[in-house]
Structure formats: C-alpha cells, structure tokens
Design a protein around this nucleic acid. Structure first.
Lengths: 230, 230
DNA sequence: CGCGAAGTTGATCGGACTCAACGCCCGTGG
DNA sequence: CCACGGGCGTTGAGTCCGATCAACTTCGCG
C-alpha cells in the first residue's frame, strides 16, 4: 500500500508545489515522502487529530469537511490533483479530509515538509500561490452560501462544476458527471437532499438541465442558468 | 494623506509579515511602501480592478466583500491589524475591500511586494502562515454559512466575535462592541436585517444576551449560547 | 430474489423572507 | 427652540420557500 516515491513518471510533477524544485532538490525531497492509495470513501486525515502529516494529491478527488455535534457533515472544499492536502502550521487539524474517488497521495511528515519549505524558498513561494488561491476559492464558496435561496446556490454550483470539468481553461463543459451523492451536494450547499432533488426536477421541467442519469447532468441552457444566480 | 513609512513606531512591526525581516531588510523594504489613512466606510480596493496594489493593515478594521448583480453585498472576511490586504498573484481582484472603521494602511505596489517575497524568503514563509490561516478561517466561515437555521448562525457569530474581542488568547469577552450595522451582519450571515433583529430579541427574552445598546451586546449565558450551535 | 443505498416525489409544517409601520437618535437648518 | 429628515433598528402581519416526515422507485449486488 505504502511505497517509496517514483517522481519521474508522476502525473503532477510539473504542477504540484514540488515542481518548483530542481532535479537534485526533488530527489532529496522525495526521500521524506511515500506513496499511498486510498479507496473511495476512505478517511485520510481526521479532524482534531495531532496533525503530523500532510500530502500532495496525485490523482483522485478529495473533500474537506467539518462535522458538527450531531454528526452531520459540511463540505467546505475539494482538493484536485496537484493540490496540497492538510493544514500546515496548525497544532491540530480543523477539518476532516476524505476521498470521494479512489485516490493516490504522496504523504509527508508535516514538520519535515515545513523544514523543506525553509530549505527551498521556491517551493514555499509556489505553495504560497496555491494557498492564496485556496483562500479565494474558500471565500467564493462563502459568498455562494450567503445566497438565500436554493435555486441560486444550485445553479452556481452547476456552473462551477461545468467550468471545472472543461478541458480548456475559460471554457465550460455541457455535461457534468457529479462526483457527489445528493447527500454530499446537500452538505456542500447547506440544503437537504429533497430540496436538491426537487430543484433539479424543476430545472429539468424548465428546460435548463437534463438528468441523463442522477449523477450525469446536461446543461441545456447555461445562459438562463447564469441568470438564476441572483 | 499619503506619506513615507515610519516603521520604528509602527504598532504592528512585530506581528505583520514584514516582522520576519531584519533591521536592514526592513529599511530597504520600507522604501517601496507608504502610509495612507482611510475614513470609516471608504472603499480601499474595488472588485474587478487591475489589482496593482496591496497593503498591510496597521490599525482599524476592514471588510472583504463580494457584490452580486443586484448590488447586494456579501461579507466574506474581515481584516484585522497586521493582516495582509489584497490578493497576490491574481491579474484582477475578486473582492472589494472597504474600511469598517477609520483605518491606517501601509500600501505597496503588488509587483514590488511579490519581488520582495522572492528576495526575502522569511517574509514569504511568514505570509504563507498567514495565508494558510486565512484559508482555515474562510472555510470555517463557509461551514458556519452551511448551517440551516438563523439562530445557530447568529450564536456562532456572537461567540466568534467574543473570542476575537478577548484580551488574552483562548479567552472570551463577555461584552461585544459590534463594528457592524444590522445590514452588515445580514450580509455576513446570509440573512435579513429583520431576522437578525428578531433573533436578538428572542435571545434576549431567553436570557442569553442583553442588548445594552443595539451595537453593544452582553453575553449573559455563553454556555447555553454554545449549545445553540447545532 | 431480497436487500440496502441512492434518488424521487408528495403532504404538511414551520421558519425566514417580504412588506409595512413605527421609534430612536442625531445632524441640519429654519 | 422646534421642525424636518435620514439612517438605523425594532416590531408586526402575512406569505412562501425549504425542512420534515413518509412512501415509493430504481439500481446494483450478494
């Protein structure tokens, strides 16, 4: 399950934070990491633990969640390949991180990772860019959740997913394969599964979308979808 | 209004990102910055502009907001003294930043600031810590907004403000002076001003809080307040 | 075939929004 | 001095949207 790194054929070697390293630096850095695979649904880091690990996501999709007292979870973020996994500089972790799909990670000890950042400033700068971007995304998520009606939130989510699913940047896919159950969409948008279902139904009746399967949504009229976003 | 820096008596000289610099580095860095004061309510950076400036907040309180098509604003974050103001690495800004109180800033050109980060890795690391922390705060805000009832959101906000207002860390003030109008609280929590007002009224009737003035709230029973957070 | 997970749909209820009126405070100006 | 007005906050009445509870379907899988 866990094994030494093989950076040479790593699919994110040019896009992850470690891409800022030179050949020699990278092979030095590789010594402190190891590969690990997780099955879909597996918990990777738990909330409130001692936060001694962090990672780079090589493939798959992760969710970052918070669980409230009664056990219901709220999704606060996703992590895509090349993304950083974990929470630097924090004595204990605030969020739980779990795999939405089968996932391949490159695990590091957090203190070793932080030492590497001190040693190689280019990597720190690269991670800073990533972190700043994550802050922006998290704030846009907060703005999305500040909307007061269900249709607006769902329309916004669909468009975000469509933009993310596009092959080229600044493009938009017209078919979305949701990696999320209705329950997870609800946990993301602060709604219930029934509301999600009904809004999808209403949007389909209005000719905005088409549910090819429950998880596979075709955007029939993206223009009118954008107009739903108040 | 705008003037050269006087770092020696700067109140955040030990806590802002530039605190990572040595004496000589700081005086070098100070050459590219300048002081500027803003009145309460003043817009500091606009959303969608070309994002050529950034800053460190010296004193006062700022809000980071997004404005939707119909003009209603959503508050996604606050910036406290020593905090970084602006969006690094982004060709154009995503959010508007405005002063909630009278505020004093230390302004920099963004490209000069980014160059400084390359030049002085310690400052980059310091800013990375700050950025990682901002991401966590933004995600907790998203989790707060994922809650589905008004009372829970408002209780959570009150406790967050009380923690922030405490003199010592890990302590909690029992009186909060809200720097926000009801309208701004509504923009922050995704509720309406009437709902805010009514929930405050209900909480007061239940002996949880006391409105000494509309802006000055005493936490009478913080324990039961925490229990409201589902 | 049975079972369970995921999703849809219906009926009902309650909480938050909407619209409206009113009180309070403070500055302005006669 | 009072009158006026505007910003801010509170309160009330009515409506509507989304949560809740419940039944049912579909699909995958042993």
């Amino acid at each position: 399950m866990s094994q030494a790194l093989q950076c040479d054929d790593c699919p994110v070697r040019d896009s992850a934070a470690c891409a800022a390293l030179s050949q020699e630096q990278r092979s030095e850095f590789a010594k402190i990491g190891r590969h690990h695979n997780f099955a879909a649904g597996a918990k990777i880091f738990d909330a409130g633990d001692d936060n001694r690990q962090c990672a780079t996501l090589i493939s798959g999709l992760l969710k970052v969640t918070q669980r409230s007292a009664d056990g219901t979870e709220r999704i606060v973020s996703f992590i895509h390949p090349a993304g950083f996994v974990g929470e630097l500089f924090a004595p204990s972790s605030h969020f739980e991180i779990a795999a939405l799909t089968e996932a391949q990670l490159c695990l590091f000890g957090r203190s070793e990772y932080e030492n590497a950042l001190k040693l190689w400033p280019d990597m720190a700068l690269s991670l800073l860019q990533r972190s700043v971007n994550e802050t922006t995304v998290a704030r846009e998520m907060a703005a999305l959740l500040g909307r007061r009606n269900a249709k607006s939130r769902i329309a916004a989510l669909l468009l975000i997913m469509a933009d993310a699913a596009a092959n080229r940047p600044c493009d938009r896919a017209d078919i979305i394969d949701l990696p999320l159950t209705r329950e997870e969409i609800a946990a993301l948008l602060g709604l219930t599964i029934e509301t999600i279902s009904r809004q999808f139904g209403a949007m389909e009746k209005d000719g905005l979308i088409l549910r090819e399967t429950p998880r596979r949504i075709r955007l029939v009229d993206p223009q009118r979808l954008t107009e739903l976003i108040e």
